[in-house]
Design a protein around this nucleic acid. Sequence first.
DNA 1: TTGAAAGCGCTAACAA
DNA 2: TTGTTAGCGCTTTCAA
Lengths: 349, 349
Amino acid sequence: MEGKKEITIYDIARKLDVSTATVSRALNNSKSISEKTRKKINEAARDLGYRHNNFAKNLRKQKSHTIGVIIHELVSSFTTSVLGGIEKVTTEAGYDMIIAHSSEQMEKEVKNANNLFHKRVDGIIASLAFNTDNLDHFMPFVDKDIPLVFFDRVEDSFQSTKVIIDNYKGGYEATNHLIQQGCKNIAIVTGPQLRNVYKRRFSGYRDALLDAGLKFREDFVIINELDYQSGIEAAKQILKLNPIPEGVFVTNDLTAASFIKAIKDMGKCVPEDIAVVGFNNDNISLIIEPELTTVNYNGFLMGEVAATQLINHLLGKTDVSQLSTIIVHSELIIRKSSLKSGRRKQSTI
Amino acid sequence: MEGKKEITIYDIARKLDVSTATVSRALNNSKSISEKTRKKINEAARDLGYRHNNFAKNLRKQKSHTIGVIIHELVSSFTTSVLGGIEKVTTEAGYDMIIAHSSEQMEKEVKNANNLFHKRVDGIIASLAFNTDNLDHFMPFVDKDIPLVFFDRVEDSFQSTKVIIDNYKGGYEATNHLIQQGCKNIAIVTGPQLRNVYKRRFSGYRDALLDAGLKFREDFVIINELDYQSGIEAAKQILKLNPIPEGVFVTNDLTAASFIKAIKDMGKCVPEDIAVVGFNNDNISLIIEPELTTVNYNGFLMGEVAATQLINHLLGKTDVSQLSTIIVHSELIIRKSSLKSGRRKQSTI
DNA sequence: TTGAAAGCGCTAACAA
DNA sequence: TTGTTAGCGCTTTCAA
């Protein structure tokens, strides 16, 4: 049942009466080969239906020509954009990509890391899970000098290239915008402080308050899972606060949207009673009413940058900047969910 | 710089003074080996930090132990669920999974198929791109007896295992529900009829109309890309119809949501002026106001079923049902966006 | 139950 | 520019 036999370079060599070394050179565009034989061999390969055997090549070269990507979740449009950017760069460089996702669980992240290690990927691009609290599972890569690039959810203390946005700035601007709109009491709904992204957004939030001479209150900080359900629960908690805040910074768009929906159901108006700012600029930010003010950043670019760093390292184009932290641009997009003052700016997609 | 040298079965064999054959047997849990040596070898492997070399194994076995997954888009929560289901089954069976996505372009789908073919995946699970109009790129797999399983977006005329939902039923029930709500003029916003899913949903729509003695009108059929922007454009078109339909069936939740948003912006009420039913039960269906009536189906299960079919085939557990079409359960979830009559059912997540 | 040995398909050092 | 040859690490047939 097994189709016809696979064609190998031996078959081509035999047919053309050359050595397999020559065939290999031709197929790999080596320079020490005449244009004539190269052409002849490529034609024969096509005629015979030759297909390249990666296993043999990898075995011989001790390289997999594959990079592993570890992400925390597939479902966000941000992640998807990043993957798109990574894919573009790796494909152009002739690398394959294996995607492993942890569903936000450290346990799965560890498994994925081990799996990719055993699969001998040449490099790793990773964003940490919600609850990852140590990076031991990445040590095997370090020990074997397999390059690691982290993006978005990174661990500051870990020595490696990192690609991030300025979450502090994002948090600061979001909060400051709410202050500009006249909010005095501003709450924040965010994720575990374990993750740098949430910690930084939080720092930006707090500093914006303090810089404006406003009080920072612990009880105005709500930390949860940042999923759909969390938004609803956060809404209940917020409405129990005294005073009820006039502004809330929710550090994720899905949660911000379900939060808005919930407080509206509870009889509050957005932005009149409570102004809301999100984070990410997902599609959902344009579906919710009122449309959501949010922090936009370019996931695709982030993926491109991360992959480019990694590939350059693999290609030996390493320079001192290799262990640097690269910051990708982000910006606040102002929409109706936060505009107390009645003046309305154009919404952006 | 290259860490320490890799440990191979030769190192283990030498240390324990046995043959590599024995080591291989022990590591693969062969039965023709004594419990004692097996244990000894496994311990040594652990001590030495042995890691399995897949390239050599695959080269030798002529199998990649990898299955390729070709999907049209990563960004939907449906796709993500399916991938989750596939991953669960393939991982349990010890297979790896390579994900390739086509961004809805046939051109990329062809490239992905070729790539996976050259990578010698043992099997393929695929859902077709928006505009794929022939399946020649899957013929190499057929020729080599590499099993193919299609899910969701399948091509009826192609001989292979298929895992789908009953899109006809979904379309029929959605439309019928609108009829029950008293709609006489019902429009449909859907995707290219090339794709079975949209064709079937459309057939269900039309038959529901005809069965209820209502007129089917060509000008009430809008076909587009079913993305965010499409919903806005569809809204403009719908409001130009004469008469303006009292019900619209939009065969995708994101588009349904942006459609609702747009017609509300144009001064119409949902469901009073226009009742809307979507398809997929995405998160977004609970964010849009009013909440969206939609067709729910279990993507995770679909992925599990598809992967199980494929793995069984690979394991030789094939039976006659192999080339069958498997239909996964789906159901209409009724929410406020379609309830003209004022009675309100509980919404479901 | 174990071992010897061949070979999966490819690349690259060395020789010609 | 081309050929010879020796492995890369593993599995498996055959023999012991």
